[in-house]
Design a protein around this nucleic acid. Structure first.
Lengths: 230, 230
DNA sequence: AAATGAATTAAGTGATTACTACATTTTTGC
DNA sequence: GCAAAAATGTAGTAATCACTTAATTCATTT
């Protein structure tokens, strides 16, 4: 048996496995979900809760009802697992953004809906925020290395550009706004509110859910609309 | 001599040392700066760069040109050191905010200056952002425990309330705005831009310093003013 | 100059951690 | 059914980490 690869020679068994293997197209020995998927899902939760350095490999593998060994089998290293986590988190958000059908709507209404969507997405995917914060802590070390992420771009930014252009054409919006800055402002208002809710509510006393959240939602929409209206 | 404390019994020798000691009023055996201060300054840098779990105790002590033991001598534990780091970072910002003398200025101008101040402070104190992000990752675990932080409150929020009130009185601002939401919006626009600059610039291609930064500064001021103007 | 205690250093320690060598089981192509 | 390859499980290991024990230096007091 000298020809065989010596059974997963450490790092040689990378991640790009699914594409390369010869046989075994579908069914896994496991139940429905693939082990790889389960690890990825568990890693998102653990990295979101503890950060990259605080997220322990064995905590991830146990949360995935798997084994440390499998993380290295499928991903090679903790860091490469984190890169895939980043990719998945972005991809999921971009998928959700793609479902936004705001091109027919009145520009003002489209703007309002977009602000609401952003806030809702952050609220329902808080792991996105902490993982992104972590990546910024590390000065974007991993995003810059990921080819997959570099190729893609946010559908929401394109959407915002279209909404803005229609608003200008209809005479509703002033013409001297950079759509990118408008887009970033929507993200900023919502990101800050959700991401910093713990330190904010500690200092402000009040919780930021419930009525405060509703009020903020109205306020954010108002700020954005006022920013572009003629 | 049964009264004496038995030579630093590990955690019993806490931090509140300076006030309590009997003799030795001033001079340290070291050079000018106290070891405790040096450790705190080094901890800010290290925690800001690597996070709480990623920031190693021995890296901090070496950066402070001291010794692991001294961290435990003065702070008791890595976590208590982190709490003091949080306290210092907040206190420094609140001190800077206190220096803002914007009560005489025209309300609109005061608003503009406040936005600029916030952006400048984040740019010149990026460690503030990463440390706060870390604390939010940990769900405010430490801020809620720190009594010192609970007692204080942001001078800038008070200032914003005064500016807003004067603006309403003068008929410049609409009356139905919550000053807190206005204040949070200023923070949000600037915090997001500076904190997420690594992931943002990775996706947008462009860097966010230089001209883009100048443009953003104008834009942020504009957004805030438009949000309150009648 | 002796006593005193705070400040500092040196040298660990046990627990934890990311990662791996090796063995075994499961699946698939033929 | 049978090899070969893929997937999984077991049991580590070397390195790292937060934290400690214990001894020493040094300014100050008396």
């Amino acid at each position: 048996m000298t020809e065989q690869t010596p059974v997963a020679p450490s790092t040689a068994s990378r991640s790009a496995r699914k594409g390369k293997r010869r046989g075994r197209p579908k069914k896994q020995p496991n139940g429905g979900i693939d082990t790889r998927e389960k690890i990825l899902a568990a890693a998102i939760k653990v990295f979101a809760a503890r950060g990259l350095s605080g997220g322990r490999v064995n905590v991830i593998s146990r949360a995935a009802r798997s084994n440390d060994r499998m993380i290295y089998y499928y991903f090679g290293s903790k860091e490469r697992l984190f890169v895939e986590v980043l990719e998945k988190v972005y991809r999921d958000m971009w998928e959700a953004e793609s479902a936004l059908a705001l091109d027919q709507a009145d520009p003002i209404e489209a703007l309002e809906k977009f602000v609401g969507f952003t806030l809702d997405y952050y609220l329902s995917h808080p792991e996105m925020l902490t993982i992104l914060n972590n990546e910024n802590l590390l000065q974007g070390k991993h995003v810059t290395k990921s080819k997959k992420l570099k190729e893609l771009s946010s559908p929401a930014l394109d959407l915002m550009e279209r909404i803005y252009r229609r608003g200008v054409e209809k005479g509703l919006f002033r013409a001297d706004v950079k759509p990118l800055e408008l887009y970033l402002s929507v993200l900023a208002l919502n990101y800050f509110y959700v991401s910093n809710r713990y330190t904010l509510s500690a200092f402000l006393g009040a919780d930021l859910t419930g009525d405060s959240l509703k009020s903020w939602r109205r306020w954010a929409v108002d700020v954005i609309v006022r920013a572009v209206r003629v």
